[in-house]
Design a protein around this nucleic acid. Structure first.
Length: 466
RNA sequence: GGUGGGUUGGCCGAGAGGCGAGGCAACGGACUGCAAAUCCGUGUACACGGGUUCAAAUCCCGUACCCACCUCCA
């Protein structure tokens, strides 16, 4: 069985054939660290984290590069607004991003390059493009360098557009461009409005890199001139990815073999974004559900489908996920085993996580049908394996609930509850059910649910956390 | 104007010519002292109008509505 994925460039599902047997190079456009990440940003990260885990599961040695854009117009503008250095803003927001991703168990990438650390690589690429006649220094002395769209006949191939059909960019300030669609590779320093910390020396004068060149340079540096998969959100297809591909290919690099783009999380039918004022910050959502539940909610939908975010749907997903956790609790700790064939087939089919989750539920139901230890021993490892691939294993220490303090606390509560449960057991034995129920209600008021199981009473925290 | 995507049962959300994914909710039942958990059962949904076909939610044509990109954006 081969892994197939939808390639946005060819608009079809294709077999995944890595450039090098057993290895996979993946580049994902991360964020511009200008503000706190919202759930939409994080969905993209989860999608590609699942891709990475699935490739790894199949035995690929994965190089997973996710960049961070730590300088751009917005960062400079915001920092100026807040009266602090741009690098301080970027650094702080980068920290928040890392936190948010950790809270939903997105693995750290193999490497997370930042734009500001790769200016020499970008200048080298720009130089190559200028030498080859695909880029030129602005004719107005601004210090900008532009990519010459007309010099690259296949410009538009990624998104199936023709340059002449594109909406005439109403570029109020042509800034020495030969064609309005030419885009900046290098942005000349604006002395009056930009701090000198935001300028790097270059043959074209001091300035800073344009957005698109960053990714081309960094992908090239860490994955080589040709690599397997390039990912990002759908909005990046154009212009960002189109531009990246044009630059890199014009410079003589084959670039990505496959392009993957994830769809949006919308609210009230609109794309979630800061400017629309409907952005939902991750910590805000985590006041309502646990990180693992948020991740489950995201994984339940296909990565290419729009998801209309709602707290109701999120809550429902959380309830469903708790059923899986309840099963795992019953099974007790153990190792992950093999993933069922149906699960693998679903994942192989362009990361069919919805179908994969269906297999997960099917397996849990199958196991629950029989309480026999043999059934548990058979199915529990499968469930753990599937959850592992999806990054949803509750036992994963990444969820951060198994610290020693927690363990000690759990033991303490357990001792207290055990005493009460003993009294309740006595009452039940004496058929004094009123008293038994009173005890159970008391415990419940403390936020602890008691269930009677064939193996005796069991307690859990009412909020679903353990 | 160009490009891409969408419209599925009470809700979420898959699928992509025949066989009712899965989850949540609801109702009935089993189990239980009662609960909880779990299991079993119950729902003939695919925007609209045509067409192709033995067979269409899935293909074709048309219509309506929605969204995204073409400017910074996961």
């Amino acid at each position: 069985m081969t892994f197939r994925l939808y390639d946005t460039a060819t608009r079809e599902v294709r077999d995944f054939r890595p450039l090098e047997e057993g290895k996979a190079g993946v580049y994902v456009c991360g964020l511009t660290v200008q503000s706190e990440p919202h759930v939409g940003h994080v969905r993209s990260a989860v999608n590609f984290d699942v891709l990475r885990r699935w490739l790894t599961h199949q035995g690929y040695q994965v190089s997973f590069i996710r960049n961070v854009t730590d300088i751009d117009d917005k960062i400079l503008a915001k920092a100026a607004e807040q009266g602090r250095p741009w690098f301080n803003l970027a650094y702080e927001m980068h920290g928040k991003l890392t936190e948010a991703l950790a809270s939903i168990n997105v693995l750290p990438p193999t490497y997370e390059p930042g734009a500001t650390g790769h200016v020499p690589e970008m200048l080298e690429l720009i130089d190559t493009l200028v030498t080859r006649g695909h880029a030129y220094a602005a004719e107005d002395g601004s210090g900008d360098v532009y990519f010459d769209v007309r010099s690259w006949p296949s410009y538009g191939e990624l998104t199936g557009q023709k340059v002449d059909d594109m909406e005439a960019a109403e570029d109020a300030d042509p800034r020495g461009k030969r064609d309005p669609r030419d885009f900046a590779l290098w942005k000349g320093w604006k002395k009056e409005s930009e701090p000198d910390t935001a300028a790097w020396p270059s043959p074209y004068g001091p300035g800073r890199p344009g957005w698109h060149i960053e990714c081309s340079a960094m992908a090239g540096k860490y994955l080589g001139p040709a690599f397997d998969i390039h990912g990002g959100g759908v909005d990046l297809r154009f212009p960002h990815h189109e531009n990246e591909q044009a630059q890199s290919r014009a410079a003589g690099h084959p670039f990505a073999s496959y392009w993957m783009h994830n769809a949006w999380i919308t609210t009230a039918g609109e794309k979630m974004s800061k400017s629309l004022g409907n952005a939902l910050q991750v910590p805000k959502v985590l006041e309502r559900v646990r990180g693992i539940e948020l991740r489950f909610y995201m994984v339940s939908a296909h990565y290419r489908s729009h998801v209309e975010f709602s707290f109701e749907a999120l809550d429902e997903a959380a309830v469903g996920f708790r059923r899986i956790e309840t099963f795992l609790d019953k099974a007790g700790p153990g190792e992950a085993g093999e993933v069922p064939d149906a699960f693998a087939a679903a994942m192989d089919d362009d990361l069919g996580t919805p179908a994969a989750v269906a297999v997960l539920f099917d397996t849990v139901r199958e196991a629950n049908r029989s309480d026999a230890p043999a059934a548990l021993a058979h199915f529990a490892p499968q469930v753990r394996a599937m959850l592992g691939v999806l990054g949803l294993d509750p036992a994963d220490p990444a969820w951060g609930t198994t610290g020693s303090d927690d363990a000690a606390l759990t033991a303490a509560v357990d001792a207290l509850v055990a005493g009460l449960l003993e009294q309740r057991a006595e009452a039940r034995a004496a058929k004094d059910f009123a008293r038994a129920d009173t005890i159970r209600d008391q415990i419940k008021e403390a936020g602890i649910e008691v269930e009677d199981t064939p193996a005796g009473p069991r307690w859990t925290l009412s909020n679903g956390a353990r």
